[in-house]
Design a binder for these strands. Structure first.
Lengths: 138, 138
DNA sequence: CCTTGAACCTCTAGTCACTAGAGATCGTAG
DNA sequence: CTACGATCTCTAGTGACTAGAGGTTCAAGG
């Protein structure tokens, strides 16, 4: 197994420029090169890049992933840190869900109150303009 | 009323550099200047900037806000466009909530399955590494 | 009138995680 | 040996700001 970057890309579903970007920021090690200077990859890189992609899909930030990858290099250590990274991330997502849910409720009320008339009497525009005064006071 | 930028900032709770940034991208008109070259603002700018802030709090993008502001300049027009901007935004937020909720469920299951042992047997690390194969197949 | 110091000015660069494009070189099938 | 797709490096752009350097203006107190 001695894969070119395009083949690695196909197997991991990570785009070629993204792979190069990950190398540039040190998330992937600098790949060995062919005689002509093209990157060549082995099975470890496939695994590592798959890990990165899955973690990104789960919404982890690059720095968290860096940390998680460091941890997997020390498999006998306690998984306490991995656990706390994941818990922190979970709390962050829950906070974002709460924020977005509040927004959704507000927007959905606005949209339902719109009488489809003219701008000057539109509840949507009105609510945005008066937001701070009328209902919330934040 | 002839406000300096700091006073405008205080009244609208928009930071000074952000106000300058909004001017730079054309979201706020170029403010008239004092003799020494400092920006001075009147009541219209307070209103406009409040509108911008409220719209940002509701998660609208700058381009949408630009559009909404254009609409408020033509108050006799139909509010059809405002309505569709708001609906599109609402749909977008609902999609993001759905995505985040799916993430939350997955993360929360991962975290609850972690036995607080060693990395090599940690469900969190394992799930990230095997994500594609084990349960989803996407 | 003069000084002080907070507030203001412009300009550049950094954030995050990529993405796009230009222009050149490599690898391989026919 | 030639074509041509894949690869290379490098720079710049995205969105919506934020941070900092280095200089100027304004208003109040002495």
């Amino acid at each position: 197994m001695n894969l070119a970057i395009g083949e690695l890309s196909r197997r991991t579903e990570v785009k070629v420029p993204t792979i190069r970007y990950y190398e540039q920021i040190g998330l992937l090690p600098a790949a060995p090169r062919s005689e002509g200077g093209q990157r060549r990859y082995g099975p470890d890189e496939v695994k590592r890049l798959n890990f990165i992609r899955h973690a990104r899909e789960l919404g982890f930030e690059i720095d968290d992933i860096r940390h998680l990858l460091d941890l997997t290099a020390r498999p006998q250590d306690s998984c306490h840190e991995a656990d706390s990274i994941a818990r922190r991330h979970l709390a962050d997502i829950e906070r974002r869900i709460a924020e977005l849910t509040a927004l959704r409720n507000e927007l959905s009320r606005m949209v339902s109150e719109c009488g489809h008339g003219r701008i000057c009497e539109c509840r949507i525009v009105e609510v945005i303009a008066d937001h701070g005064q009328c209902r919330h006071g934040h």
